Amino acid sequence: MSTQKNVLATAGEVKGSDALRMDAERAEQVVDALNADLADAYVLYHQLKKHHWNVEGAEFRDLHLFLGDAAGTVEEITDELAERVQALGGVPHASAATLQSEASVEPEDEDVYDIRTSLANDMEMYGDVIEATREHVELAENLGDHATAQLLREGLVELEDDAHHIEHYLEDDTLVTQGTME
């Protein structure tokens, strides 16, 4: 724990931004939405990393690489979200406890599951994150914050692309057979 006494910005307070011509009232609404997205994205990131670390089986390599890339994409999105929060005069959520408590998505527990179950859980979480992001694009647009809306749209494209790939992984068609030992 830091003993620092000179707090530069207090978590939860939003100043707005003169440079971006965003008053505190509008900025606070956008910052709250972005911090919610940030928390959700970090929960998704950690779940993807869990599956990246634990995947096994005949399709190990492809899934291991995909899940690592997907986690990396989500991590890049979190960085953009946090930087935008700061630019709007807010304080991005940063502690693990705050991120988990503020997330609207529920992570998988610590157990390791078969990859189909893991991917189905990921796809469910992606869906929740995608829906929230779409709502926040609309919120930002309605508040006249077109830059935040654009940032969220760009992240949304990436999230939807990875969710679509997971959907393909979960299809029944596969080269791997489930033969029985006699």
Rank of each mutant, 00 (worst) to 15 (best):
T98Q: 07
R84I: 02
A41M: 06
G68A: 00
H93A: 06
N121V: 14
I130D: 01
D122A: 15
V7G: 10
D162N: 14
E110L: 11
A103D: 15
W53E: 07
V14Y: 01
N142G: 01
A96D: 01
V14K: 02
F66T: 00
T10L: 10
G127T: 08
T133D: 02
Y45I: 04
L44A: 14
T177M: 10
M22F: 14
T177F: 07
E182N: 09
D62G: 07
N6S: 14
D79S: 02
T10F: 11
T73V: 06
G16N: 01
E56D: 10
H52N: 02
V157I: 07
L159P: 00
E182Q: 09
L99D: 03
L81Y: 09
A39P: 08
M22R: 13
D173F: 08
E83A: 09
D122K: 13
V105K: 08
D161S: 09
D162H: 14
K5C: 03
I166L: 11
A39R: 07
V31M: 02
T10V: 07
L38Y: 13
V43Y: 03
N142H: 09
D79A: 05
L67P: 00
E160S: 00
E102R: 13
V91I: 07
A33W: 12
N121C: 09
V74K: 06
A87T: 04
V85G: 05
M181L: 09
G16M: 15
R153A: 06
L8C: 11
E167A: 11
L156H: 02
T177S: 15
L143C: 05
L159I: 12
T10Y: 10
L156C: 02
L152P: 03
V112Y: 13
A87Y: 01
T78Y: 15
E160F: 01
K50Q: 15
P107G: 06
L175S: 12
V91Y: 00
K50M: 02
A96M: 10
L67E: 00
P92M: 02
V112N: 09
A103Y: 06
A33M: 08
V157L: 12
T174A: 12
A82Y: 04
E182I: 12
T73M: 03
V85H: 00
R153Y: 15
N35W: 04
L63H: 12
L38G: 13
T10C: 12
L170M: 15
Y113F: 05
D162A: 06
L156A: 02
E13Q: 12
H51W: 07
A11Y: 13
L48R: 05
E75T: 11
P107C: 03
M181C: 06
V31E: 03
P92I: 01
L99K: 00
P107N: 10
A41N: 14
R84M: 05
